[in-house]
């Protein structure tokens, strides 16, 4: 999931020109889980902006329940058909969702002016209703097979691939005494799994061209193609 957090309302207020008619859009998947753009937060934002003099002409969180705002076909249908009357009068949209959902609203409204209501902060695991944390950096080249399933690119503050720096103290990382040293976690997990020998193997530097942006994925007949600066990489979904 894409974790997001709302921008301060003062910052959002600064976006609008006098008299601008604004339609607010939330997301019922990730942003709802982050309490940054679910139904209650989107309705609340409409009220907060209205009470500060913004001309909010409507709001919605595209349904069906739990659907992602970044599904363009659904978002376009909801904004153009279900809410066509309001969105037709809108000068701009405020999106309470991640950067992908944000762009989806641009696409779904024919390139309208769209304002970001959230900062997109990371991709994470929804550990519980109240805690989301990051285990993957979306680098394009997964190496966790060799690190006990724990990603050093994400869990080590320096993204070291060949083992710990000398900075850990009492199992905590040098950057923050409250944060576990990622390599300490990897070491303990490999030890528990009886796979400590993985630590001895030299790991090549990462191919950062697979982490180039923007990247894309094209889904074809029985095959998918990943495109990045490392080139096009096609994988068949069956033998």
């Amino acid at each position: 999931m894409h974790a997001t957090i709302q921008k301060p309302v003062e910052e959002i207020l600064g976006y609008f020109k006098p008299g601008e008619r604004v339609f607010i859009v939330g997301c019922d998947n990730c942003a709802a889980k982050c309490h940054s753009g679910g139904i209650p937060e989107t309705e609340e934002m409409a009220g907060r902006l209205k009470s500060r003099g913004v001309d909010v002409i409507g709001w919605c969180v595209p349904q069906p329940k739990g659907v992602s705002l970044c599904k363009l076909a659904n978002t376009a249908r909801v904004l153009q058909e279900e809410y066509g009357k309001e969105t037709g009068q809108a000068d701009s949209f405020l999106v309470l969702a991640c950067g992908q959902g944000f762009h989806t609203v641009m696409d779904a409204t024919g390139g309208s002016m769209v304002h970001p209501g959230c900062d997109t902060i990371f991709g994470g695991e929804t550990v519980s209703d109240t805690f989301i944390t990051e285990y993957c950096s979306l680098c394009g080249e997964c190496i966790v097979e060799y690190t006990g399933g724990l990603c050093p690119v994400t869990l080590c503050a320096k993204s070291l691939l060949n083992g710990p720096c000398g900075g850990a103290k009492d199992g905590k990382c040098e950057v923050d005494k409250t944060r576990d040293c990622g390599w300490q976690l990897i070491y303990e997990r490999l030890k528990a799994l009886g796979r400590l020998e993985e630590l001895s193997a030299y790991k090549e530097p990462k191919n950062y061209s697979r982490w180039s942006r923007p990247r894309s994925l094209t889904i074809g007949e029985g095959e998918v193609t990943f495109k990045s600066l490392s080139g096009e990489h096609t994988v068949a979904s069956h033998d």
């Binding site: 070291l160 691939l161 060949n162 083992g163 720096c165 030299y202 790991k203 090549e204 530097p205 950062y208």
Partner: peptide, 10 residues
Amino acid sequence: KPVYDLDSVQ
């Protein structure tokens, strides 16, 4: 921005 393109072994 921390770089760490290579680690010390690399």
